[in-house]
Design a protein around this nucleic acid. Sequence first.
DNA 1: CTCATTTTTGGAACCGGTTCCTTTAAAGTC
DNA 2: GACTTTAAAGGAACCGGTTCCAAAAATGAG
Lengths: 332, 332
Amino acid sequence: MNTTISDIAQMAGVAKSTVSRYLNGGSVSVKTKQKLERITREAGYVPNTFAQSLKAKRTNLIGTIVPRLDSFAAAQTMTGIDEELRAAGGQMLVYNAGQEREREIEAMHDLARQKVAGIILMPAQVTDEHLRAAEAAGIPVLLVGQGNEALHSLVYDDYQAGLLMGRYVLEKGHRRIAYLGVTEEDEAVGRRRKEGFKQALLECTDCKVFYYESSFKIADARLAAERILDECSPTLIVCATDNIALGVVKTAHVRGLSIPSELSVTGFGGYEVTSIIHPELTTVHFPYFEAGKLAARHMLKLTAGEEVERLTVMDVEMLIRESVDNLNNPSV
Amino acid sequence: MNTTISDIAQMAGVAKSTVSRYLNGGSVSVKTKQKLERITREAGYVPNTFAQSLKAKRTNLIGTIVPRLDSFAAAQTMTGIDEELRAAGGQMLVYNAGQEREREIEAMHDLARQKVAGIILMPAQVTDEHLRAAEAAGIPVLLVGQGNEALHSLVYDDYQAGLLMGRYVLEKGHRRIAYLGVTEEDEAVGRRRKEGFKQALLECTDCKVFYYESSFKIADARLAAERILDECSPTLIVCATDNIALGVVKTAHVRGLSIPSELSVTGFGGYEVTSIIHPELTTVHFPYFEAGKLAARHMLKLTAGEEVERLTVMDVEMLIRESVDNLNNPSV
DNA sequence: CTCATTTTTGGAACCGGTTCCTTTAAAGTC
DNA sequence: GACTTTAAAGGAACCGGTTCCAAAAATGAG
């Protein structure tokens, strides 16, 4: 069915090693080069990747394990990875872990078995199991979004993000604040982001802060917002992610609370939708796309055996928009 | 480095063909079965996929070509495909075409070369080039979202969607309507959806309808909305996709137009965000996730050589929410 | 023109499995 | 216990490339 290198060799009247050499740029005389050029083209010859990989013992595939396919952050990161990989002749093999830890582990084994050249992992949490699986895989593993000393990591400056946000809302005069976070098992989003925020709040002596927790789901955030509004009526709710903020905004609308005049809301992430809704959401921009590109570049270096700094921190940027009221001018 | 089947054979003192038979459930005595069970486990033996595929001449990979990674429809469809494939022991290899036609073609060649078992393609348009590439690939190709007689297709009932929407807005008393569509090169979204809508409008004698066109981008939709509002001040704008509707809503907000009292807006798609924004967007739900699952099931059958109906039409469902004003009761 | 050197080629082994065919061992029959 | 039948195991070829090494051809030097 498909023409093989032997077919080509036969047609050209040469040995298949010569054809192979021609294909891989080895020493071939001008004459045979031309002949082979013509024949491979006419026969529509396409090398069999398996045979190549079997010998080479590796592929140009980079496995990418994402928690879910339908999240803004994951989509942006994947797009970045894909773009950069493609430019270098590589390819991305996406593995959807469906937000389950065991499936992340399983994915690493599976990808290693498929001899991908490296694995880019976007976990919610890094456990010993992850480290063991990474070790067992025997290929470079790069973490995105979470850091770990044992592996190459690319993280966002979550602490700084929390700090910026804390300072900003203080500056706007808010003194009764709810922080709607996520589980502290999530080192980056759950802990660091909150710690930065707390640090900023330290500078404020007359502040009341209420800490709440939710899952990453919008529906859960809506429920949490109900509780917050009932229990402590803050002037502002700082949400650990844009999605959570979206849920809070929704609850506010349902209750007929106007944003920001009656309730201020902020998020983290900088998802596209936050600039589409009304009022636009004040949030912190995380460079997901750039992180994806950088992750891919780092991975390419790693697979080439080059050195890469173990920890890279990506800068974040405050996005000041419309969802936070300025309480300093009680005018009008 | 990695243990091979020969290593196992040697350790067990049997021929590698016996090990292979053991692994693939051939006839092996109880005694050797037990011995091999122990040895493969202890050695942590994992078969090399390339060697297997080289012989088998195919993989359990299904190539999926998407226009972009960061779209709700693509993400939902991919999730559905992935879920169903995984359940059947297969895997999805995502190829991002970046909304460029040539890259879709290139992707098909590339995937065929990598010996994927089949290709699921989500094109904006099906050209002769697509058909030729599908032919050349020599493997099943399944279209999702667009239909073509030459290939197996899974489409949404765009005509019906347009019809439902047209009837609904008429019923709500709108008589001065703008339809913000997309290029007619897109058979499904550009033509069928609009045709259904037009059909519904035929029943209305005193209607004024203005047709406009935009790209799929929110930014372009905002611009188009500006034009529409300036030129024909309709009571309602029917948008060909939810994203376009989002852009129109944004423009309305910027102009201080209240929705739906001063301007009604509708979309198509049923993206998650449409139920989060305020007011919630009236739209038509397209079963992207289910389509993905069904596409995967069909593909699995096709790769198994089974028959599958050439054209499958997925039902859509009207989602009546808050963004369309009822003009029939000018009371209060 | 001969001999040494370099370039180009061919042959064979190898990558790690699967599968076909043959031989050997075990089991069943009379 | 000898003979047939069936089950289990071994050996070799094959999938389609790459690579190493040796042979052949072309080139250069003297």
